[in-house]
Amino acid sequence: MVELPAPELDTVFHALGDATRRRMLRELSQGERTVGQLAEPFAISLAAASKHIKTLESAGLIAREVRGRTHICRLDPGPLASAHQWLGVYQRFWTERLDVLDGLLRQEDAKTASQPTGEDT
Results as ranks from 00 to 15, higher is better:
M1D: 00
V2A: 05
V2I: 09
A6L: 14
P7T: 07
E8R: 14
L9A: 11
V12H: 02
V12I: 08
V12C: 04
F13Q: 01
H14K: 12
L16G: 03
G17L: 05
A19P: 00
R21E: 01
L25N: 03
L25I: 05
E27G: 08
E27H: 08
L28P: 03
S29E: 03
S29D: 00
E32S: 07
R33Y: 02
Q37F: 07
Q37H: 08
L38W: 03
L38A: 06
A39T: 11
P41C: 13
P41S: 10
S45P: 12
A47E: 14
A48R: 14
A49L: 07
S50L: 15
K51M: 13
K51A: 15
H52F: 11
H52D: 13
I53L: 14
T55G: 03
T55Y: 08
T55K: 15
E57L: 11
S58Q: 15
A59S: 10
A59Y: 06
G60W: 08
L61C: 06
L61G: 03
L61A: 07
L61R: 07
A63W: 03
R64W: 06
R64M: 09
V66T: 15
R69E: 12
T70N: 07
H71S: 14
L75E: 04
D76Q: 15
S82N: 06
A83K: 03
A83R: 03
H84Y: 01
Q85Y: 00
Q85C: 00
L87N: 00
G88D: 10
Y90D: 04
Q91A: 09
Q91M: 01
R92L: 11
F93M: 11
W94L: 12
W94Y: 14
E96F: 03
R97H: 08
L98H: 05
D99E: 08
L101S: 02
L101F: 07
D102K: 08
D102T: 09
L104C: 02
R106A: 10
A110N: 06
A110R: 09
K111C: 00
A113T: 13
S114A: 15
S114L: 11
T117P: 04
G118H: 13
D120Q: 14
T121V: 15
